[in-house]
Computed example of a mutant assay.
Amino acid sequence: MNHHQFFQHLWRDYVDIAPQAEAIQQLFIERGETIVNDHVAFRTFAQSPIELERLEPLLEQLGYHAFGQYTFDTKKLRARAYCHEVDELAPKIFLSELEFERLSERTQAIIHTLIAQIPKNAVEDPNLFWHGPLWAMPSYDAYCALRDESEYAAWLSVLGLRANHFTVSINHLETMQTLEAVNHLLKAKGYGLNDVGGEVKGSAAVLLEQSSTLADRIAVTFPGGDTHRVPSCFYEFARRYEESPGKLFQGFIEGNADKIFESTHA
């Protein structure tokens, strides 16, 4: 599998649970735009068979290498960014993991029951990145308990390992060259935006601006037959600025990303 095939599989899985992304992309296409994907992001559990260090070799097989590390102390997360070694237009990858052993004993116990079900040899090929949960669906009570302490953990418990967002590169659009213009179009079409810290996170001063929709909601059937609607995935938009003449900043800003995570909050 090459990285082009990898992202094709990811996109199909992603739009199945985030139909807004496909509809928004169509809005841009109708304006004559060609969409370039800036990055995709994944979530996982630390101290598990699918922890960051175990997933990284799969990304290396696709031609990616790590170039940045990030921490989110309040959310108990660490992350690493990856870029393709040859294809400059290939999407970057942002892989984060929850350091759940820093959470309460009750939350840790719930998460331990999930990761105990993951096969020890789960990391075999890139198909894993659109597999979804590698464990049985938790009870709704367990989901709510996770959500009360970590929205990230709750999301991961029901949706598993898969792309939680794709990102449109504003730098490659022709008819809308600011996030404000994109956000205006989205709101006019009825899409809700993540306004934590403002609709636009970041600035030219930090070389990166980002905005995002609020996650779609999907119906999930929990053990016992109860069905509840939970946040699934969202669509992001990023504008990068030059860090030197002719060279766009390629990294991420922790202050921006911390707020973007909240696009999936219930």
Results as ranks from 00 to 15, higher is better:
N2L: 10
H4P: 01
Q5T: 02
Q8I: 11
H9S: 03
R12D: 13
Y14F: 15
Y14T: 00
D16V: 09
A18H: 12
E22P: 02
I24T: 09
Q25D: 06
E30F: 10
R31D: 14
V36Q: 15
V36R: 15
N37R: 11
H39R: 09
V40E: 07
A41C: 12
F42A: 11
F42C: 11
R43I: 06
Q47T: 14
P49Q: 14
E51K: 13
L52S: 12
E53L: 10
L55H: 13
L55C: 10
P57W: 09
E60I: 13
Q61I: 01
L62F: 03
G63P: 10
Y64M: 01
A66I: 02
F67G: 10
G68V: 14
Y70S: 08
K75R: 10
K76G: 05
K76Q: 15
A79K: 05
A79Q: 08
Y82H: 03
Y82R: 01
C83P: 00
C83A: 06
E88G: 00
L89T: 06
P91L: 05
P91K: 04
K92C: 06
I93D: 00
I93P: 00
F94Y: 15
L95D: 06
L95R: 08
E97L: 08
L98E: 08
E99F: 02
R102G: 05
L103Y: 13
Q108S: 07
Q108V: 07
A109F: 06
I110H: 03
I110P: 00
I111H: 01
H112C: 01
I115L: 12
A116Q: 11
A116W: 02
A116E: 08
I118Q: 01
A122P: 04
V123G: 06
N127R: 08
L128M: 02
P133G: 14
W135V: 01
A136D: 09
Y140Q: 14
E151R: 10
A153I: 03
S157Q: 02
V158G: 08
R162I: 11
R162P: 04
A163F: 05
A163C: 13
N164Q: 00
N164H: 02
S169M: 01
Q177L: 07
T178H: 12
V182T: 10
N183V: 14
H184I: 03
K187F: 04
K189L: 04
Y191E: 02
G192H: 15
G192D: 15
N194K: 12
G197R: 10
K201S: 07
L208E: 10
L208W: 09
L214D: 04
L214P: 02
A219N: 12
P223W: 02
D226A: 05
H228I: 13
H228A: 11
P231Q: 09
C233N: 12
R239S: 05
E242V: 11
E242L: 12
E243N: 08
E243Y: 08
K247S: 02
K247Q: 04
F249I: 07
I253M: 03
A257N: 04
K259F: 06
I260Q: 08
E262P: 04
E262I: 06
A266K: 14
